[in-house]
Amino acid sequence: MTNHDTHITALFADDAQAAEAVSALRQTQWPVADVHGPIPSQAVSEALGIKKSGVGWFTLAGGVFGFFLGYFLAVFTSARWGLIVSGKPVLSYIPFFIVGFEFTILFSVLANVLGLILLMRLPANRDLPRYRPECSADRFGVVVGCRQAEAPEVRRFLTELGGEMPGQADTQRDS
């Protein structure tokens, strides 16, 4: 990978074109810094070689924790009561399953959200400088890193692949 000091964004009208551009770029020395799009796309994900998200592990951990927490809460509070209600034993494990189940869902979802926040690194306002607003509307933006001197060549390469070059698409590297 070359050292790059600027980014060039090319906008593509559909995800197939963007995926094709990503595949072509991966054969060059110019790294694909980012791809932005209005919808998730299988073609782009495959071209980028993106792996399955690990957010499910957060969800699973939250669910397991929630289940035991719910059960523990029901057992603990009933043990503190120590009263027989409706003829049920003080520790009625079957009805306690309902509390355990609801807590499983609750903590799975909370952990799912936590996982999303951590993995997507939200809030991600620092990404906005390299982002083109067209990418939330109807364009797929491929952001390419390169050296300033190579910019014309990269632009030509991306244009040949069907990319549009919006004004001021180059952004200086922010680090």
Partner: peptide, 26 residues
């Protein structure tokens, strides 16, 4: 929250949303 539709975001978002739906159903 600074959403930009990066594919790194979509990767986690799509999975997380699916899990949301799977949990909301039961």
């Amino acid at each position: 929250l600074g959403w930009t539709g990066r594919y790194e975001q979509w990767r986690h978002y799509s999975r997380g949303y699916l899990l949301f739906a799977a949990l909301a159903t039961p």
